Simulated scan of single mutants.
Amino acid sequence: MKDKTIDYVLRATWQAVSRMYNEEASKYGASMSVGFALLSIDKENGIPSTALGPQMGMEPTSLTRTLKSMEDKGLIVRKKNPVDGRGVLIHLTKLGKEKRELSRDRVLKFNEVIKQHVSQEKLDNFMEVAEIINELISEKLIFTPENEPTE
């Protein structure tokens, strides 16, 4: 992996993780995005539909499709927000809570296996590097005039 760029390694790794979770989720008639949505919805209080997309980093059209699928499968119900009648809260059904626990178990299993193969020091370094990358991107410090190549 010596000659690969940082973004290539991030992308390739994320695609492998995504494929792994989708393969696992397909055994239960779901997808990684459904599992992630289940984990993002508060078990007791639900979540405003407007907060779910940003929390998951999903585009509105993808989120709408995912929520429709989840509703069709009986995993969620939409209820009027009692605080703001214009808003909608997404709540897990009994089945949704069961599938949420299954998703949670799969995520914990992934973390457990990685921790068996990677030292805590290396994991800490990985987390630190990921945080720095996210900060640089969110603060728009990558593509700035001072970082542009000179001729």
Rank of each mutant, 00 (worst) to 15 (best):
D42E: 04
D84P: 03
V34C: 04
M1A: 13
V107C: 09
G74S: 07
L75Y: 12
L92I: 02
R65V: 13
P54V: 01
E112W: 01
K27E: 04
K79I: 03
K73R: 14
I76Y: 00
L95V: 12
V17I: 10
T13L: 05
G29T: 06
G57M: 01
W14N: 12
V17L: 10
E112C: 01
E101R: 03
M20S: 13
D3E: 09
S62E: 07
T64E: 07
K122G: 04
G46K: 06
R100A: 10
S40K: 07
A37P: 01
E44V: 07
M127S: 11
T50L: 11
N81C: 01
G85Q: 12
T13I: 08
S138I: 12
I132E: 13
H91R: 09
V118S: 05
Q116R: 14
E148C: 11
L108A: 12
R104V: 02
I133Q: 01
G29D: 08
Y21W: 03
I76Q: 00
I133P: 00
K122T: 14
R11Q: 07
L123P: 05
K73A: 13
I114G: 08
K43Q: 03
G57S: 04
R100G: 04
S49L: 02
N147K: 06
L95A: 12
T5E: 15
P149S: 08
E59N: 15
M127W: 09
E148A: 12
P54E: 11
G85C: 04
E101G: 03
R78V: 09
L89F: 02
P149H: 12
E128N: 15
S49E: 05
G35T: 01
R100D: 03
E112G: 08
I6F: 10
E121P: 07
V17A: 04
D42L: 01
S103P: 13
P149F: 06
L102T: 13
S18A: 15
E23L: 05
S49D: 02
T5H: 13
L39D: 05
K115I: 08
V9P: 01
Q55P: 08
G46Q: 01
L63A: 10
E151S: 07
T66E: 08
G29R: 00
A37Y: 00
A130S: 10
N134W: 00
V34T: 11
S40P: 05
S138W: 05
I6H: 13
T150R: 14
R65L: 14
K122F: 06
K79H: 00
E139T: 05
T150W: 10
E44G: 13
S33R: 15
S62V: 10
L123S: 04
A30N: 07
G85E: 11
G96K: 01
T93S: 02
R11C: 09
K79R: 13
R86I: 11
E101D: 08
I133A: 02
